[in-house]
Design a protein around this nucleic acid. Structure first.
Lengths: 338, 338
DNA sequence: TACGCTTATTGGAGCGCTCCAAAAAGTGAC
DNA sequence: GTCACTTTTTGGAGCGCTCCAATAAGCGTA
């Protein structure tokens, strides 16, 4: 008979006892205090190892320690734009000993009362909101929050780090214009970022004295939306030679629509996306896109968060707008006949 | 001057005071006890609302409550196979009041000492390991653990829920054979799932008395690996008419290689993937693939976990193998000339 | 009005830590 | 050996909750 009673995990007292020291000393060792003799330190560490001791995050938090955890709210795991954001965050936070807890907003929608409740209950030290902020996202005063990636939808007292979507939209559009395209279209959606990118598109098109259609799918910015929007665009304006999609996922849908029409990319139709997500860099797509600097956005968010968490000073709220960058790949070229 | 001192969050005592009741009563209300008078209940809830009170997860956990949280270890956010797994888990867990905490294994590799330490420190009620388990994943006795998606790499005392990768590999291969292909190849990688799928491939090929090459990229199963492996395959066996890739991501690379060689899919080359990940269902790929039943795997994992967490009985370790299913789409067809 | 019984409410103990002030152990100069 | 320090180690208080036993309140009924 194996004793498999879920024997509750060992505590700091257990470690103290087997190491022959006081619980306080164990605590000091675990938190890396310099004023502990080498002998005791090793004794404690051995006891830890032997017992398989893992400090209770709960007890530590309760006892006033900070959780050293930053909550990150993502909108949807399926759209990969957040990957480099997360990476930038991670890299900016790790050196300061902060860990990240990720939560998918749409997925947890039914579980919690509010989208932030889980994180608030676990007393995260800070929050990164990488979605369109909703009014339900009420944040307690004093909790450092950074809205990353979106600059619309205000969260009171939150810093904002985002790339300049409007500029990015202009960049993408100007790239198409410079290649010689005059009949272009934009595939857009309902989100804030999409709106700004559409504005950039409009800016660039108007600056050339052109008019160009903006089409949407079902309002979201999925592959399906991109596909539908592109079909509609190609129906209504068959002479179109270039398409700017609000993000890479939509661009993927546009590529599908183009193929369906027998249009080669980029020979017959140029397609440009936005986000420089992992799928854009694949051999299959080689999608020209706009790098929204998500890694840098993440790094900047990390930096802001660390500053706010570690300093007591009352820093003013800041908005940082990073400059997007064109990522030319193989999905854009000049139009067949100028 | 606004008082923006990070005033620490209100406690249960604050709520009790403003509601004019005892802290215990507040606790009862919050945990939905039936034996609380309506008057007090509303008084408490109003106080909660007014103060913006959020119970401290840490204190609750420490005081003996369970965390109602299941930790999920994912290998890499970029490979989307886990999405439906997560969804299945979520749906199975939510009705029982469990929440999910996700962590990306490769991303957190540098942060924590062990891959599970974060979860252990937060005292999760159970664990889902959706990666190849590594020896470093030592799990405390009594903690319910389910290894999901992979059946190799044993974690002591853990249940296993996975699809039958070997059978799936056979299914995929037989599909190609039935379509009439005789010159086929397999793109594989180093992981355990890949190994099993390769075995299935071998089984099916041998059963027909054929021989067929298995190629790998750099050992992983990324798009890049798929691309490189496919190129190599097409170099070495240019007459190949069908390719079975170890997963959808690799299949995507194979599609790229095919296009580069001027091979149309499926007319000149059939490509089948594995996982039925979100990218397979896109309009652009319409990839024939094998559904690894990840949603069901997730659901089954949830069910096992809930059972183990809520019953004290000492259930024996179980391995459940779900039957994979072919998902025919448009990337496979018969060979041009039989 | 008092009695038992059920239902609603309360205070106290304790979960496993951190933090702090205080005690113990070293260390060197006299 | 003593004294004044410095370095290392310790016990106690308390974080915000849950759980439990105990009390208070309500409610019929004798």
């Amino acid at each position: 008979m194996v004793n498999s009673r879920p024997s509750r995990p060992p505590t700091i007292y257990d470690v103290a006892r087997t190491a022959g020291v006081s619980k306080s000393l164990v605590s000091l060792v675990l938190r890396g205090s310099p004023s502990v003799s080498e002998a005791r330190r090793t004794a404690v560490l051995e006891a830890v190892e032997q017992l398989g001791y893992r400090p209770s995050q709960a007890a530590a938090t309760l006892a006033g320690a900070t959780t050293r955890t930053i909550g990150v709210v993502i909108d949807d795991f399926r759209n990969l734009w957040f990957v480099s954001l997360l990476q930038g965050l991670q890299e900016g936070l790790a050196p300061h000993g902060f860990r990240i807890a990720v939560s998918d907003h749409t997925m947890n929608a039914h579980v919690e009362a509010g989208p932030l409740d889980g994180f608030l209950a676990m007393r995260v030290d800070g929050l990164v909101i990488a979605t369109e902020p909703t009014p339900a996202m009420r944040v307690p005063v004093g909790l450092p929050v950074v809205v990353a990636g979106s600059r619309l939808g205000v969260v009171l007292g939150a810093d904002v780090v985002a790339d300049d979507d409007r500029l990015g939209g202009r960049l993408a559009t100007e790239h198409l214009l410079e290649l010689g395209h005059r009949r272009l279209g934009h595939l857009t959606g309902d989100g804030g970022a999409a709106r700004l990118r559409a504005e950039g598109f409009r800016d660039a098109v108007r600056a050339r004295g052109l008019r160009a259609p903006e089409v949407r799918g079902a309002g979201r910015t999925t592959e399906e939306d991109g596909y539908r929007a592109a079909r509609r665009l190609l129906d209504e304006a068959p002479a179109t030679t270039a398409v700017f999609a609000a993000n890479d996922t939509m661009a993927m849908g546009a590529l599908a629509a183009a193929r369906e029409r027998g249009l080669r990319v980029p020979e017959d139709l140029s397609v440009i996306g936005y986000d420089d997500s992992p799928i854009a860099a694949t051999h299959l797509l080689q999608l020209t896109t706009v790098d929204g600097r998500n890694a840098e956005v993440g790094a900047a968010a990390a930096e802001r968060l660390v500053r706010r968490v570690t300093t007591t000073a009352d820093e003013p709220v800041r908005t940082a707008l990073l400059t997007p960058r064109l990522m030319p790949r193989s999905s854009c070229a000049g139009p067949r006949d100028g």
